[in-house]
């Protein structure tokens, strides 16, 4: 057990967390995971607290997961999307958030297309700010649930070879995974087209490779990222066909993997692009475990931060 204490009102990213703090979240999530298996899936930890899911960028899975997590902690929840908020009438993010605070909202879960938006709010509001993904910066709860899933299946993080494949440059999931896993002692390799995996990533303490067939045989975990068509200008790579040929986790390539290598994906999946359908549904895949664990991890985060907020 870690002896770390939690004293953050916000969860903005994993870069700023210590290994002890990360472990504390994971251990707290262990306790909450049990709750999900009970007949009564609800605990009173955040009873009387109000949580706003403030999603300025579209999301189904993350928003649903946070909403369920809040329900299970007995918090009151409202959802706000960009089109339904005053942002669409030209109100600034600061003003919209100040309105929420004036309504005594305790926790704001923010998804935003601009890097740094959660920190911007955290510096200005007393409410807890939970980053549910900010641009290409961080998606800390995804990084935590991926780490949780690896730890649950492999019983450790230290010394594992974790390979993250795909669009690293534009991926907040990649960054949060890199920060958490390297702090806990994993060896992380990022793989993808050179345009989407710049060498600058080496400065984050990871290896950069453009040869997927070389890194797969020693991998303990393979985490595949979606190729995000909507973010990319077409000069980043010549087309989906060539991407699959170079970097797709096809059935044939999956044979290079160790039998106990975990296959992960934060979703949503483009079947037949970054991963073959059979591989995504195969027995090495822990994609649905990630979803289940996401709920427990988000309960832990809301519980820890919600207890600090004033």
């Amino acid at each position: 057990m870690t002896t770390a204490r939690w004293n953050r009102k916000d969860l903005l990213g994993l870069r700023e967390l210590s290994a002890d703090e990360i472990n504390l979240v994971l251990e707290t999530a262990d306790a909450f995971k049990q709750v999900g298996t009970r007949e009564i899936k609800k605990v009173p930890a955040l009873r009387g607290k109000t949580l706003v899911n403030f999603f300025i960028e579209p999301s189904t899975r993350t928003r649903t997961s946070f909403e369920l997590a809040a329900f299970r902690l007995s918090a009151d929840v409202i959802n706000i999307t960009a089109s339904a908020s005053s942002l669409s009438k030209g109100e600034t993010l600061k003003d919209t958030a100040k309105i929420l605070e004036a309504n005594h909202v305790d926790i704001i879960v923010l998804r935003h297309s601009s890097a740094g938006a959660p920190q911007f709010l955290a510096e200005r509001l007393r409410s807890s700010i939970i980053n549910a993904g900010d641009g290409a910066h961080e998606h800390p709860t995804q990084g935590l649930l991926d780490t949780y899933t690896i730890r649950e299946k492999k019983k450790r993080i230290e010394g594992l070879n974790v390979v993250i494949i795909g669009d690293i440059l534009f991926s907040r999931v990649a960054r949060s995974n890199i920060f958490a896993l390297t702090k806990l002692g994993a060896r992380v390799t990022v793989v993808g087209p050179s345009t989407l995996v710049p060498r600058d990533f080496e400065k984050l303490g990871v290896a950069v490779s453009y040869d997927i067939d070389k890194v797969l045989p020693t991998a303990d975990v393979v985490n595949l990222l979606r190729i995000q068509h909507e973010r990319q200008r077409k000069e980043y790579f010549p087309g989906v066909g060539e991407y699959i040929r170079l970097f797709g986790l096809t059935k044939e390539r999956a044979k290079l993997l160790k039998p106990d290598c975990l296959i992960m994906h934060p979703g949503p999946i483009n079947r037949g692009v970054e991963i073959d359908s059979e591989v995504a549904d195969g027995n090495q895949s822990v994609i649905l475990n990630q979803v289940t664990n996401g709920l427990a991890v988000r309960m832990a985060v809301l519980y820890l931060c919600g207890g600090i907020a004033t």
Partner: peptide
């Protein structure tokens, strides 16, 4: 393009 900060270590780290 739509660059907002120097391309390098910090843009990589911050996702800008």
């Amino acid at each position: 393009g739509n660059g907002v900060v120097n391309e390098g270590e910090w843009s990589t780290l911050l996702g800008l």
